[in-house]
Amino acid sequence: MTPPVRPSVATMTAEDVVCLHWPVDPDLLRPRLPTPLDLSLFDETAWLSVVAFGATDLRPRGTPARLGRSFSELRLQTYVWHRGTPGRYVFSVDAGDRPIAHLFRLTSRIPYVAADGRVERDDDGVHVVSRRDQLGMPPATFEATVTLDGESSAVDGRDRDRWIGGHGRVFGAAGGTLWALDVERETPAFRPATATLWENTLFDAAGVPTPSSEPAVRYSPSWPMHASLPWLVRQ
């Protein structure tokens, strides 16, 4: 039986969401997961994703909007199972807000790292830039330009998109212990897109295999979500 989603205490809207998904040999990725997580597979393949967005209006749920904070986020994650529940294991989150990165790393054990980053949309597409600048952490740079393909919201691979979007629980293990939190969200209708990668050292920094194929690229203008308090995952 899938455990119920825990009550949400924080709200946020992800804007100009860019997702790059790479297929990866499960045997190469499985050793990077902490016990007791198992890889979640789609078509017998593991997936690594880089997800970038502008986090807007992050605040405790029910508080005035003026208390919200906005900053860029860049996540490296894969998809897992834990006792019948699908989730995302986060290798790193580069956040363009140093106090938030420090607070979330301490309280959630999701590996937030301070970075100089931005996610901006203009007539040419969405530009994502993140340069990690936190002392004591492996350096990492990501820069890409994402161009939307056509006007339709329909995309090939939408079954995979729904599968990825269904992994709502988030797992992180910064500090050596495994923690989790639940995220309530409705998977949006992603648009197809094309990415030009100018630089990407996220995989090397996280110690995960570098995919050899081109990513499947998706875009959504807005993705509201709500998060629970984190809890320690007992093994």
Results as ranks from 00 to 15, higher is better:
H226Y: 12
P99Q: 07
R160T: 04
P7V: 04
E120V: 15
V93N: 05
A180T: 10
R185T: 12
D123H: 11
D25P: 09
V90F: 11
G117Q: 04
G117Y: 03
G84Y: 04
A65D: 14
A14Q: 14
L103A: 15
P192T: 02
T45K: 13
A10Y: 13
S212G: 14
G175R: 03
P26V: 03
D116C: 11
V80E: 07
D116I: 11
G125L: 03
E120K: 08
R131Y: 00
M12D: 09
Q134D: 06
G168F: 03
R66I: 15
G96L: 12
V93S: 02
P36R: 06
R131L: 10
A227K: 01
D159V: 10
R66W: 15
L29I: 07
F71C: 01
R158E: 15
T11L: 10
L181V: 03
T187R: 07
R61D: 14
T201E: 07
T11W: 08
S72F: 04
R109Q: 13
F42I: 06
T141M: 07
I164A: 12
R169M: 10
V126I: 15
L41P: 02
A52C: 15
E214S: 15
F190Y: 15
L58K: 00
L232D: 05
T13Y: 00
S49H: 02
A46I: 08
N200H: 09
Y79D: 10
T56M: 03
P23L: 05
Y219I: 12
T107H: 07
P188D: 11
F190R: 04
R121Y: 04
T35H: 14
G150W: 11
P111Y: 01
W198C: 04
W223S: 11
Y89S: 06
F42S: 11
Y112I: 02
P26C: 03
D16S: 12
D161C: 09
R32N: 09
V24P: 06
R61W: 09
G168N: 12
S8H: 09
V183N: 07
A55H: 06
P230L: 08
L148R: 13
F91P: 09
M137Q: 13
S213W: 06
G54Y: 05
G96M: 10
I100S: 12
M1V: 13
V208R: 00
D159F: 00
Y89C: 06
A65M: 11
L48R: 01
R88T: 15
V50I: 15
L58T: 10
T56N: 02
T45L: 13
Q235V: 14
P192K: 01
V24L: 09
P224K: 02
S8L: 04
F53K: 00
L232R: 14
D156I: 08
R61Y: 08
A195F: 02
D123V: 10
L74Y: 00
P111K: 01
P31T: 04
P215R: 01
S220N: 11
T201L: 08
S92K: 04
R105W: 05
Q134Y: 00
V155D: 05
D16G: 07
Y79H: 11
W47S: 03
V146L: 03
E73M: 06
D182S: 08
L74H: 07
V217N: 05
V9G: 05
W231Y: 12
S92N: 08
G175Q: 06
A154T: 13
H127A: 09
R131P: 00
A52I: 02
V170F: 14
H21V: 15
P221G: 05
D182I: 09
L67P: 01
V119L: 02
L229Q: 10
V93L: 15
